[in-house]
């Protein structure tokens, strides 16, 4: 019996050795899939968007095989630290609080302003009713102003709230609001931006220093040869490196 256990242990050890190599080549990319233009699900049911193209390019440069997974926004960090995927590439702004729990690569977008979308130009942003998605930096921002914050579970509902008059305006990332305000005749984007949060970076486990170095190097090379700017251009995200 004892020998049997030793053999199994030995087998397991060899398995570990080979699999450690396997890890180096397959990286699971965690995203939300509900935040165009950064990431969304296209008509073919696949992850698409700025971050999809960026991630594929980064993986190619770092010579990694990457796989895309979607996860609910609320549990996206707990699932990263518990090892269900290896990176978060989901339009996540680099903030101090997040940085305490996970590591970020250098930013791959410049800080994107948040913007207001309202039904008319003349809304009272100081004392009015402002909608935001629950647990976002925008919600935290409004809660500190004099305005009345009303929180909805999804971004979709925040837009709906403005359209049906529940809220005077919605505060969200500008890149997310722009296409919506462009296509909906009832909505206008106000000429006022709020700078919240830092740029967007790739989130990684703190214990995954090696992977972080690889992605950092790949982002640097994309910044240097201008391909990152080309991608930002293509998906109409503000700010160039």
């Amino acid at each position: 019996m004892k020998t049997l256990i030793t053999t199994t242990a030995l087998l397991a050890l060899t398995a570990t050795a080979t699999l450690a190599d396997g890890h180096a080549s397959t990286v699971r990319m965690g995203t939300e899939g509900a935040y165009p233009p950064y990431n969304f699900i296209n008509d073919a049911g696949e992850v698409d968007g700025f971050e999809r193209e960026l991630g594929d390019e980064l993986c190619a440069r770092a010579e990694l095989t990457c796989e895309w997974v979607t996860n609910e926004w609320d549990s996206i960090i707990p699932n990263l630290v518990s090892g269900n995927y290896d990176t978060i590439i989901a339009g996540m702004s680099i903030t101090d609080e997040r940085d305490e729990v996970i590591d970020f690569t250098q930013n791959y977008t410049l800080p994107d302003p948040s913007a207001y979308v309202a039904a008319s130009e003349d809304v009272d942003l100081e004392n009015g009713v402002l909608a935001a998605q629950t647990n976002t930096i925008q919600a935290a921002f409004i809660s500190e102003t004099g305005a009345t914050l009303v929180e909805f579970a999804t971004p979709e509902e925040t837009i709906a709230a403005v359209k049906n008059g529940e809220a005077d305006a919605v505060l969200a990332d500008k890149a997310f609001l722009t296409p919506i305000a462009d296509e909906d005749p009832d909505l206008v984007m106000l000429d006022k931006d709020e700078m919240l949060g830092g740029g967007i970076g790739l989130g990684l486990r703190e214990s995954d220093g090696e992977l972080k170095a690889k992605f950092d190097a790949a982002i640097t090379s994309m910044k240097e040869d201008g391909s990152l700017n080309a991608l930002l251009e293509k998906w109409e995200i503000s700010g160039r490196f």
């Binding site: 609320d74 549990s75 630290v81 629950t134 647990n135 914050l149 929180e151």
Partner: peptide
């Protein structure tokens, strides 16, 4: 239903903390 001025039920605050501490 939406939560006004961060007045919510127990689950609302629990998820607030889970979001802020990243520890469910």
């Amino acid at each position: 239903f939406p939560a006004w001025q961060q007045r919510g039920d127990a689950l609302y605050y629990a998820s607030y903390f889970a979001d802020k501490t990243f520890n469910p």
